[in-house]
Design a protein around this nucleic acid. Structure first.
Lengths: 153, 153
DNA sequence: GTATCTGCAAACGCTTTGCCGCCCA
DNA sequence: TGGGCGGCAAAGCGTTTGCAGATAC
């Protein structure tokens, strides 16, 4: 499992190189490390979290660069931005179709898949409305950890 | 139709009164007008938009009061907050089960219903995860108006 | 009367931007 | 070598908060 993941990551990093060359973007040390860090992350990190992690490898990196690189990666459709009900944006690399559970309390994001939903024909209203990326389903609620904490009160 | 809507609104305003009395909150002119304005609105207004509208009736009202009143109404489960992918929050009075289509470009929100979805058993992962308010389904995409604008470029 | 609320202003946190020196291509 | 890029600092934006006077109950 570990090995195939490493392969996947190096494959995506090559993809990054290719896209940069194609679009005339510069392949800098900072951009590579930010993207690599996000590929390794499993927790939909915030900008700040990602910044702290990359800082360990590049101590002089600035928060602005992380913002700018994430904007660039998003623009290139290589990563997804997920907006929580608080102002903070969270990020994940672009991988297979999946949906998100967001906890209104702790803001943690959990991935889930829902085949029955994915294959269900959407109501005609939606198709008329415009273009929907099915993978963008977001369900808000309160996770069991936070529910437990609330019960204690 | 008009008449029944008015009845609905005055009914909800009475409910507001009752809730305030119950929770020891004060029923102020400002709060009433803000809530009434939101009940009348069909377009999921932002704080700023709501502020501009209420200002017509209460010229001295401040934006802070709108923020605070909306927070209070949300806390009392009388209204819903909808977060767009931009930072702006939008609001709607609490009414029947429905879902939201949010346009990533213009941020406009369209309501839709989806019976088949509402009655579909959620995957076990979700139930284990925590407590999900089914009405909180949000689907992001790009509305047909914005698609048309993009094609023109 | 008094606890809450309002309006004002200032602060807040996340994000974006202008600038200039630096670096990849 | 040159045009994009990084780091720094400051501004930007929606939102929140502290305060003192006003208001509902």
């Amino acid at each position: 499992v570990k090995k195939s993941q490493n392969q996947d990551i190096s494959q995506k990093l090559s993809g990054f190189e290719a896209i940069c060359r194609e679009k005339g973007l510069k392949l800098t040390h900072q951009r590579l490390e930010i993207y690599r860090e996000l590929l390794l992350a499993k927790d939909h990190p915030t900008v700040e979290t990602l910044y702290q992690r990359v800082k360990k490898r590049i101590p002089t990196i600035s928060l602005d660069t992380v913002y700018r690189t994430l904007a660039m990666l998003e623009e290139a459709d290589m990563i997804n931005r997920i907006q929580t009900s608080e102002g903070h944006a969270r990020f994940e690399p672009d991988y297979g179709v999946h949906h998100h559970l967001i906890c209104r309390k702790c803001q943690n994001i959990t991935d889930f898949t829902w085949k029955a939903f994915d294959t269900m024909p959407p109501p005609p209203e939606i198709e008329q409305w415009g273009e929907v990326g099915v993978k963008n389903i977001v369900i808000e609620g309160i996770c069991s950890d936070c529910l437990r904490k609330e019960e204690k009160k």
